[in-house]
């Protein structure tokens, strides 16, 4: 059996990684000098980055286009709420609540990953709605009314804000680091093979179900933890918002506009969505129309997103996940 090595990282990419790490460390120090408003806003940005990276991992690399990943965002929040109600301290509850989503995602993966592309997308949306309905039956949630994470209100506001921000930043950083490690290795190559042609991949010995399941579960976990951090920031849990289709629309927008299947695209897409919200958020429905117009413009004139524009201009895609495998000894 021929063994692979992973090709070395080009110098430009190494510099880019160093810059991203420096940015990460700089952002980690933000609570020491940033205003409460900025910390609050950047917490939302970290949630967006995590969601975009997770959705890109799923759709961009494994070809699993989901419009129902809000199921895990809402379910993570629900589990966190339940844990807090049963006496668990709020911050650990946010992380554990997110992790508990795997208990639901694992059996669901056996069902939905057997479906074809369009069926998978619809099934995920239907499942999200079904799970939302079940959550609403819980007397604790009281249907549409929802519930607040009152235990968080007992914590000093600065400590609460900074902790949530750092949790969000760590989650976004972990999501990016994990997806980089996975996609540069054998799993990434297998996922791209499945995305291009699942039957051909299987005929070469790739266990398509195993690869898809790993990526599905990682994306579910990432979305769930992002959801619990968002809940910690919003405090109030309402099923219609937590399980809202808006989450999928945002994820789709960030990934498509940033560059589907590129590594840095979701990060750029998240930054663009965040900027649009900051600039046009006060215009209500007009803001959403503006987001739609931006998406349409990209679909028409830059279908490969911002990363596609960068690749066309520079001749290479920064931190590309393509052509990474090489023979052992050639790395």
């Amino acid at each position: 059996m021929t063994r692979h090595a992973i090709a070395g990282i080009p110098r430009v990419d190494r510099q880019l990684i160093a810059a991203l790490l420096a940015l990460f460390l700089g952002l980690a120090a933000l609570p020491f000098f940033g205003s409460a408003l900025i910390v609050d806003k950047l917490t939302l940005l970290t949630v967006y980055v995590t969601l975009a990276v997770m959705w890109n991992l799923l759709a961009g690399f494994a070809g699993l286009v989901s419009v129902g990943h809000q199921a895990f965002i809402g379910l993570g929040g629900y589990f966190a709420l339940r844990l807090v109600e049963s006496g668990v301290s709020p911050f650990p509850a946010l992380l554990v609540g997110g992790a508990l989503v795997l208990l639901a995602a694992w059996p669901l993966s056996w069902l939905v990953l057997r479906l074809r592309a369009a069926e998978f997308a619809v099934a995920m949306w239907v499942l999200a709605e079904a799970i939302r309905s079940m959550v609403m039956f819980d007397p604790l949630i009281q249907g549409e009314t929802g519930r607040s994470l009152v235990a968080l209100n007992a914590i000093d506001p600065d400590l609460r804000r900074n902790t949530l921000y750092l949790m969000g930043l760590a989650t976004a950083g972990a999501a990016m680091a994990l997806s980089y490690a996975l996609l540069r290795g054998r799993l990434g190559a297998e996922a791209r093979a499945i995305r291009d042609d699942a039957e051909a991949a299987a005929s070469l010995g790739v266990s398509t179900m195993r690869v898809k399941r790993i990526i599905f579960l990682i994306s579910a976990l990432g979305c769930a933890i992002a959801g619990t951090i968002w809940l910690g920031s919003a405090i109030t849990y309402q099923p219609r918002t937590a399980f809202g289709i808006n989450w999928s629309v945002f994820m789709l927008f960030m990934v498509l506009v940033g560059g589907l299947g590129s590594y840095l695209g979701p990060l750029l897409g998240a930054l663009l969505l965040f900027a649009l919200q900051e600039i046009f958020g006060d215009f209500g429905a007009w803001y959403l129309a503006g987001v739609g117009v931006v998406a349409i413009l990209f679909a028409l004139y830059a279908p490969r997103g911002i990363m596609g524009l960068i690749a066309d201009r520079t001749g290479r895609e920064p931190l590309s996940m393509q052509a990474r495998l090489t023979r052992q000894g050639e790395a």
């Binding site: 059996m1 021929t2 063994r3 692979h4 054998r186 190559a189 297998e190 791209r192 093979a193 995305r195 291009d196 042609d197 039957e199 051909a200 991949a201 005929s203 070469l204 010995g205 790739v206 393509q322 052509a323 990474r324 495998l325 090489t326 023979r327």
Partner: peptide, 29 residues
């Protein structure tokens, strides 16, 4: 093992990657 109708290489991947995916997942020989 099968070489399917229409070749069905992974278009996005290099020839090397196409070959190595098979080598990595295949049997020793």
């Amino acid at each position: 093992a099968m070489s399917p109708e229409g070749r069905r290489l992974f278009p996005d991947m290099t020839v090397r990657e196409n070959l190595m995916i098979a080598a990595e997942n295949g049997r020793a020989g």
